[in-house]
């Protein structure tokens, strides 16, 4: 299946092209942009990123780990300190809080790596260093007979250039 790589200058044009392509049923596409632009990201995928579930799970795990660890350890090795109960809640708030943040942060990072599919791997053929300069790109995989149509469509949507990657 051939892949068409088109290059754009402006984020709005890119987002519009993605929406038009999707509207015509070309769903197998990927965008490349040098900076975050919500309109492009939303055109690719409307739903909010799944990273948020990771943070929530991490935070909850952290708060329970923090408090249960302290309470259990204080009961396991009971010492009376400065008149406080063994499991004395006010001081334990602090480590409970720190672990909430710690676990939440680590899980957020893991979520980022998983959701963004980030691990050392070969780059897409369609990707080039111009997309880490100031240009935007769309790579769309189309059937052989649609190439001309998509090419014309992209050009009409102010694509600077369109290249064909064949494989």
């Amino acid at each position: 299946m051939p892949t068409l790589v088109s290059v754009f200058d402006l984020p709005d044009d890119t987002a519009l092209a993605i929406r038009k392509l999707k509207g015509r049923g070309f769903d197998d596409l990927e965008s490349y942009s040098p900076a975050p632009f919500e309109q492009i990201d939303d055109a690719i995928d409307e739903r909010p990123s799944k990273v948020r579930a990771f943070t929530l799970v991490g935070g909850l795990t952290g708060v329970f780990t923090g408090f249960l660890m302290q309470i259990w350890m204080s009961w396991e090795w009971p010492i009376k300190i400065a008149g406080k109960n063994f499991a004395s809640i006010p001081p334990y708030v602090i480590i409970g809080f720190e672990l909430t943040i710690l676990f939440g942060g680590i899980l957020t990072l893991i979520g980022f790596l998983l959701v963004g599919r980030l691990y050392p791997r070969p780059l897409d053929k369609a990707y080039s260093s111009r997309f880490s300069a100031e240009e935007f790109g769309i790579a769309v995989t189309v059937g052989d007979r649609d190439v001309a149509e998509v090419d014309a469509l992209l050009r009409s949507l102010s694509a600077k250039e369109v290249t064909l990657l064949d494989d």
Binding site: N85, A87, I89
Partner: peptide, 9 residues
């Protein structure tokens, strides 16, 4: 006495 065996609250 409570602090040895029981919950603080």
């Amino acid at each position: 006495a409570l602090s040895w065996t029981d919950w603080d609250f």
